[in-house]
Amino acid sequence: MFKRIALFLATNLAVLALLSIVMSILGVNAGSGAGLLIMAAVFGFGGSLISLLMSKFVAKRATGAYVIEQPRNEAERWLVETVQRQAAAAGIGMPEVAIYDAPEINAFATGANRNNALVAVSTGLLRNLDRDEAEAVLGHEVSHVANGDMVTMALLQGVLNTFVIVLARVVGRIIDGYLSGGRSSGGGIGYFVTVFVLDMVFGLFASMIAMWFSRRREFRADAGGAALAGRGKMIAALEKLSLNHGENTLPKQVAAFGISGAIGHGLRKLLLSHPPLEERIAALRSAPEESLRAGLAA
């Protein structure tokens, strides 16, 4: 846990330092309207895109995943061959296949390029799922890659980050000017307090939007997994996920692309990356065959 937190903080500090250097080199003055927009875009998109480019490295380090280069046993050979077959069916390059140590039934996919991604499964998944169920989970993750979900989420987060930065500072200048009777143009205490508060408030709403989109992508990845492995196998795999009881030890950077998500009630549901399991299962049971095929962008 402490290793993951340290890695997360170090990554974000490195991103902020790099973006600050870029802003300094470009000579961008955030005080002007154009400068504010450029600054917001640099920080809004820069952080999410850098995180995307580093996602495979960070995921491997955060989870301690072992990448299968030469299968050591029959189980590893089956994993590699299954992903290879599904990747070919989905029309993407062969991802790296890895195993990481975690007690819950889970798997994730990440990577900035659909032809150079990573698919990893937990040891808990290997212990608790049979081959048919594990095949469906792998299909779910391959679908995330084929659908370009990692890139799409990074771009969406960049747009949301940019809007949060701009809106918080525009409103901050307006309130600061009002409180100072027009004597301040954004350098007073009212500005900094307002920006601090609105960064959190607008950031919360932005997270709700991002998580809503993530939940929609999860339904599509379930459909893609059903198209690759079979509807019955995908439903059986989702039913087995109830054994996790909401446990998810994946780091934040890849949690949205795992097969399993946390459990939430009330307003907390708005911040979850995954829909409830019963909704996912019901959607698969009622989906026509053509919508399952549409869940996989070849």
Rank of each mutant, 00 (worst) to 15 (best):
G258H: 02
L267E: 06
P71K: 12
V137P: 02
M211S: 12
V22A: 13
V83M: 08
M54Q: 11
E104K: 01
I99M: 12
A297W: 08
L155M: 14
S55E: 01
R127K: 15
L118G: 00
R285T: 08
K252A: 13
G295C: 06
L52E: 02
E141L: 15
G111A: 06
S48F: 13
V15P: 04
A227S: 14
E96G: 03
G148D: 11
V164N: 11
N106Y: 11
S24V: 05
V195Q: 01
E81T: 12
I281S: 07
H144I: 12
N106P: 04
E74Y: 07
V159G: 04
F192G: 05
A298D: 05
L126V: 12
P276L: 13
E141Q: 15
V97K: 00
M153C: 09
M153N: 11
V145H: 00
G232E: 15
L156M: 14
L118R: 00
L241F: 11
V254N: 00
L18Q: 02
I189E: 07
N116I: 03
G148I: 06
L37K: 00
A287N: 04
A109Y: 01
E81C: 09
R127H: 09
V58H: 01
V80R: 05
E218N: 10
A40L: 10
A134V: 08
A107I: 03
M234T: 11
S286N: 11
D101Q: 12
V195C: 03
E279Y: 06
S184E: 00
L18E: 02
R85S: 15
E239C: 00
L238K: 05
V80N: 03
A98M: 02
S286Y: 03
A14S: 04
F257W: 06
R183F: 13
V193H: 02
Q86A: 12
F213D: 01
R216D: 08
G182V: 03
R285K: 15
V171M: 02
L292Y: 10
L250M: 10
I25E: 03
S242K: 14
N116K: 10
G47N: 09
K252V: 12
D101T: 09
S48N: 12
E104S: 15
I99Y: 02
A34E: 05
T82E: 13
N248Q: 13
E96V: 02
K240F: 12
G93H: 08
A298Q: 07
Q86G: 06
R4P: 01
R215D: 07
A112E: 05
D199T: 08
P71I: 10
